[in-house]
Amino acid sequence: MEAKARVVDALDIETFLICKNEEEGRRISAGLMKSMGCSDFDLVFIHHEGIGARVRIRAYVNRPGDRYTWLEGGDGDD
Protein backbone atom coordinates (compact mmCIF):
# COMPACT_ATOMS: atom_id res chain seq x y z
CA MET A 1 0.00 0.00 0.00
CA GLU A 2 1.45 3.39 -0.90
CA ALA A 3 2.17 5.77 1.98
CA LYS A 4 -0.49 8.30 0.95
CA ALA A 5 -3.12 5.56 1.15
CA ARG A 6 -2.47 5.32 4.89
CA VAL A 7 -3.62 8.90 5.51
CA VAL A 8 -6.84 8.50 7.44
CA ASP A 9 -8.57 11.60 6.10
CA ALA A 10 -6.48 14.61 5.13
CA LEU A 11 -3.01 16.07 4.87
CA ASP A 12 -2.55 19.50 6.43
CA ILE A 13 0.41 21.54 5.26
CA GLU A 14 1.24 24.36 7.65
CA THR A 15 3.86 26.84 6.64
CA PHE A 16 4.70 30.46 5.97
CA LEU A 17 4.70 31.60 2.37
CA ILE A 18 6.67 34.64 1.23
CA CYS A 19 4.10 36.66 -0.72
CA LYS A 20 2.82 40.20 -1.25
CA ASN A 21 -0.73 39.68 -0.09
CA GLU A 22 -3.38 37.10 0.77
CA GLU A 23 -4.45 36.77 -2.84
CA GLU A 24 -0.95 35.80 -3.91
CA GLY A 25 -0.74 33.47 -0.91
CA ARG A 26 -3.86 31.68 -2.13
CA ARG A 27 -2.39 31.25 -5.61
CA ILE A 28 0.90 29.93 -4.24
CA SER A 29 -0.96 27.53 -1.93
CA ALA A 30 -2.94 26.13 -4.86
CA GLY A 31 0.23 25.76 -6.92
CA LEU A 32 2.01 24.01 -4.04
CA MET A 33 -0.76 21.46 -3.61
CA LYS A 34 -1.01 20.79 -7.36
CA SER A 35 2.77 20.29 -7.53
CA MET A 36 2.39 17.65 -4.81
CA GLY A 37 -0.24 15.81 -6.84
CA CYS A 38 -3.17 16.82 -4.64
CA SER A 39 -6.37 17.74 -6.43
CA ASP A 40 -8.94 17.82 -3.57
CA PHE A 41 -7.53 20.67 -1.48
CA ASP A 42 -8.67 23.80 0.31
CA LEU A 43 -7.18 26.64 2.30
CA VAL A 44 -8.30 26.17 5.90
CA PHE A 45 -6.53 29.27 7.16
CA ILE A 46 -4.54 32.14 5.68
CA HIS A 47 -3.40 35.35 7.30
CA HIS A 48 -1.04 37.78 5.63
CA GLU A 49 1.14 39.97 7.77
CA GLY A 50 4.43 41.61 6.83
CA ILE A 51 6.54 39.62 4.41
CA GLY A 52 4.14 36.77 3.84
CA ALA A 53 1.25 34.60 4.96
CA ARG A 54 0.77 31.91 7.57
CA VAL A 55 -1.23 29.16 5.90
CA ARG A 56 -2.93 25.89 6.73
CA ILE A 57 -3.60 24.08 3.49
CA ARG A 58 -5.59 20.85 3.48
CA ALA A 59 -5.71 18.05 0.93
CA TYR A 60 -8.38 15.42 1.52
CA VAL A 61 -7.18 11.93 0.75
CA ASN A 62 -10.24 10.12 2.12
CA ARG A 63 -13.53 11.92 2.59
CA PRO A 64 -16.36 10.35 4.61
CA GLY A 65 -18.37 8.05 2.38
CA ASP A 66 -15.41 7.28 0.07
CA ARG A 67 -14.06 3.75 -0.37
CA TYR A 68 -11.17 4.25 2.01
CA THR A 69 -7.68 3.53 0.75
CA TRP A 70 -6.59 2.38 4.23
CA LEU A 71 -9.19 -0.39 4.22
CA GLU A 72 -7.87 -1.94 1.07
CA GLY A 73 -5.28 -4.02 2.89
CA GLY A 74 -1.63 -4.66 2.17
CA ASP A 75 1.55 -4.01 4.11
CA GLY A 76 4.60 -1.89 3.55
CA ASP A 77 4.99 1.84 3.20
CA ASP A 78 6.22 2.30 -0.32
Partner: peptide, 11 residues
Amino acid sequence: DEAYSGGPITL
Protein backbone atom coordinates in the same frame (compact mmCIF):
# COMPACT_ATOMS: atom_id res chain seq x y z
CA ASP B 1 -10.63 22.55 12.72
CA GLU B 2 -14.17 22.91 14.09
CA ALA B 3 -14.41 26.50 12.83
CA TYR B 4 -13.49 25.44 9.29
CA SER B 5 -16.68 24.98 7.33
CA GLY B 6 -15.21 23.93 3.99
CA GLY B 7 -14.88 20.21 4.66
CA PRO B 8 -15.02 17.39 7.18
CA ILE B 9 -13.28 17.53 10.55
CA THR B 10 -10.07 15.49 10.64
CA LEU B 11 -8.69 13.04 13.16
